[in-house]
Design a protein around this nucleic acid. Structure first.
Length: 150
DNA sequence: GCCAACGTTGGC
DNA sequence: GCCAACGTTGGC
């Protein structure tokens, strides 16, 4: 089993939205590195930190898990969608998504600032300068260290 | 709203 | 294949 971190903007779709929906497809990923992680490495049962980005309180808000492995992101083929990509087609879907399920909300949101100050998290991808990846693997030691901060 | 860092596009 | 221009992300 592998651990992940996925970013989402709470103004659009936050941990409370996932909680009320129970399960959701992770559409709209339009970055090759993030796509490759989903398509090639994400497996059913993998655990995910749900991260709130681009908001007043960035940080880790909860936990989700993978319930369906990668399949074509149909929003790429829908001209009405804001995620529409004219280069995507049924033959070559280009973009993929997984389905995730709500596991739990952390008792408190772990702010980015605290993550940065925790020496146990040194080297974590999320904390690297200029990192803009919306999906990234998390080392087990980092996963555990973050759970210990709750 | 600003801006640094990064990814992508497209001309050459 | 290079690289400038552009668009986006995301913290502050």
């Amino acid at each position: 089993m592998q651990y992940w971190l996925m970013k989402s903007e709470p103004d659009t779709f936050g941990i409370d939205d996932l909680k009320s929906r129970g399960r959701e497809h992770w559409d709209g990923v339009r970055n090759y590195q993030a796509r490759n992680f989903m398509r090639d490495q994400m497996r059913k049962g993998d655990k995910i930190f749900f991260y709130h980005s681009a908001c007043s309180e960035p940080g880790i808000a909860g936990i989700a898990s993978v319930v369906k492995e990668a399949y074509p992101d149909h929003t790429a083929q829908n001209p009405e969608s804001k995620y529409y990509d004219p280069k995507a087609s049924a033959d070559d879907p280009r973009w993929y998504m997984v389905d995730v399920k709500f596991e739990k909300k952390l008792k408190r949101l772990i702010p980015l600032g605290e993550l940065k100050r925790n020496p146990a998290l040194e080297g974590m991808t999320l904390l690297k300068k200029g990192n803009r990846l919306s999906i990234m693997p998390v080392e087990e030691a980092h996963w555990q260290a973050i759970l210990a901060m709750v």
